[in-house]
Design a protein around this nucleic acid. Structure first.
Length: 293
DNA sequence: CTTACGGCCTGGGTGC
DNA sequence: TGCACCCAGGCCGTAA
């Protein structure tokens, strides 16, 4: 599941090979994850890739304007849950569920593969950048501790919900939220506004450390994630709580538990990460679950 | 405005 | 062997 460290790893890989390359041809398979596939087919051929950047979980390819055209274009790629953006020789075998092929002027191809197609691909004018990406929150690796604390403390929501909210913090997902909260010894259901200064300090440092170490390990491959060369990451070997229900806590040996917080599976140590007082955790609604379809 | 929650998209894995 | 169901993350609509 690509979150900030996985997207950062993909972007660093693409930065080694894409800048300066010209896109010769575009071939598309299923296009329901693109907001305007015709524009991608029409506009990309002939364009030169200038830069590759990450913004939160978005990959941003900046395309140089042709001489006779007005502005630069940005190709935004969001990998969703199972998206892969890979470069390979044009003759390399095609993975199943590959839905976009961009042939390059060096005999290689940039390909987008996505089993679930929860990803997104969108072409925008660089002038629209603020409209599309401007609403995202701060980057957790760029924020200072005071900014981190002030932003979260101003909100009345559970700390996990805020860390997951891309409009508050851009780039965190379920894995790194749970891993950071465990390292900071903070229960996912704690109200952010009620954390004290020491807890904010621990959380800030935990987020930075977890993300930095995960980037160094080239991300977590728990299902389909691979980097720009198709290689798996290794940070899943260093997870302390994520998907470790019933296993022993690395700190205190208590059993890791799984609960739903902010609508997401949340793994934590009930001993190291104490539940909030006053039963924030109590309302377990026993309702009839509707199963559709 | 903010927050909480349910539903939707898709298909691999699981368990019967 | 087949098949129904669960679940993943982001986003959006709705309710309070």
């Amino acid at each position: 599941m690509p979150e900030l460290p996985e997207v950062e790893t993909v972007v660093r890989g693409l930065q080694l090979v894409l800048p300066g390359r010209r896109i010769l041809d575009v071939r598309l398979g299923k296009t329901d994850f693109m907001d305007d596939p015709a524009a991608i087919e029409r506009e990309l051929p002939g364009k030169r890739i200038a830069t590759v950047r990450r913004h939160g979980k978005f990959i941003v390819l900046r395309l140089e304007a042709a001489d006779d055209e007005k502005g630069e274009l940005l190709l935004l790629v969001h990998l969703g849950m199972t998206g892969q953006l890979i470069t390979c020789p044009a003759e390399a075998p095609v993975l199943p569920h590959t839905h976009a092929f961009f042939s390059l002027d060096d005999g290689r191809e940039l390909r987008y593969t996505d089993i679930r197609r929860f990803g997104r691909m969108q072409l925008i004018a660089s002038g629209e950048r603020a409209d599309v990406l401007g609403g995202l929150g701060f980057d957790p690796l760029e924020a200072s501790e005071p900014e981190f604390r002030a932003t979260l403390a101003a909100r009345r929501a559970q700390v996990k919900a805020l860390l997951l909210d891309q409009h508050v913090v851009r780039g965190m997902g379920n894995i790194y939220t749970d891993e950071s909260l465990w390292r900071a010894r903070i229960h996912p259901r704690r109200m952010a506004a009620k954390l004290n200064r020491a807890e904010f300090g621990r959380l800030y440092r935990a987020v930075q450390r977890v993300l930095t170490e995960a980037i160094r390990s080239r991300g977590s491959s728990v299902s389909d994630y691979v980097d720009a060369e198709g290689q798996r990451g290794e940070f899943q070997l260093k997870h302390r709580v994520y998907q470790r229900e019933e296993k022993q806590c690395f700190r205190c040996r208590a059993r890791i538990r799984r609960i739903i917080v902010a609508g997401r599976s949340s793994y934590f140590c009930p001993s190291c990460q104490r539940a909030p007082r006053g039963g924030n955790a109590r309302r377990l609604r026993v309702g009839v679950r509707k199963r559709g379809r």
